[in-house]
């Protein structure tokens, strides 16, 4: 009887090497290259310093007990209760009303004054937190009734001095902030992800199971 030819140890090791190479290759593709390919990057039309604008010592009128109240100063509600979202130029010009006399001395403000205020042109901001069209979200229900801080969903955005590049998912067109900055989708903070499950999870946790009915958040 002839013995079946068994691969040598060397062949085993060699095969293992290829396995590991493939394995690592995939990890690199999946964790490093994939996110780079998946998201497109686009700078914002100009910078906006949230930290500066939310400082009551520097900016008149930014007052309020809670952080939410300070945010609402610009990101407020219309009379019918709908959320204003990113402010229109008219909100900016409540303070930055004269292109000739900037309030500070940064080149950013100068560019803003010349490029938008003087020309009375809206700033084409790219919204980090825009949900798709099928989603209905009521800010007033969460902020006023639910007394949620803006941070719960928007994180430290209000403390940033520099606007990061806007990243959009090439496939879905969604902002990266919906899935979260971590490609793993794992979250450690409530604001790390804004997917449907995250909304539902919070509703359940807060004892608002009834708000997980489909039509509460879909339109």
């Amino acid at each position: 009887m002839e013995k079946t030819k068994r691969p040598s140890l060397r062949a085993w090791l060699e095969g293992g090497g290829f396995f590991i190479a493939g394995f690592i290759g995939s990890l690199v593709i999946g964790w490093v290259i994939f996110p780079m390919v998946l998201y497109s990057k686009q700078p914002q039309p100009m910078n906006f310093n949230h930290a500066l604008h939310l400082n009551p010592e520097k900016v008149d009128g930014i007052e309020g007990e809670t952080e939410a109240e300070r945010c609402l100063h610009c990101h407020g509600f219309y009379d019918d209760g709908t959320f204003k979202g990113i402010p229109k130029l008219s909100t900016c010009t409540e303070c930055h009303d004269n292109p000739e006399s900037p309030l500070g001395n940064t080149p950013e403000e100068k560019a803003f004054m010349d490029g938008y205020v003087a020309k009375d042109q809206e700033i084409p901001w790219l919204a980090y937190y825009k949900q798709p069209d099928c989603v209905y979200f009521s800010h007033i229900a969460h902020v006023k009734n639910g007394k949620l801080d803006c941070m719960v969903c928007h994180g430290e955005h209000g403390k940033t001095a520099v606007l990061l590049d806007y990243e959009a998912n090439r496939l879905t067109g969604y902002s990266k902030n919906i899935w979260g900055k971590r490609i793993s989708g794992l979250k450690t903070n409530t604001w790390d992800r804004m997917k449907m499950d995250d909304c539902a999870e919070c509703h359940s946790k807060m004892g608002h199971e009834e708000n997980n009915a489909c039509f509460v958040c879909h339109k």
């Binding site: 509600f77 019918d80 209760g81 709908t82 209905y136 009521s138 007033i140 229900a141 006023k144 339109k219």
Partner: peptide, 10 residues
């Protein structure tokens, strides 16, 4: 309904 609720909340 959502519109009316939003108005009511304000």
């Amino acid at each position: 309904l959502m519109r009316a609720k939003t108005q009511a909340y304000t």
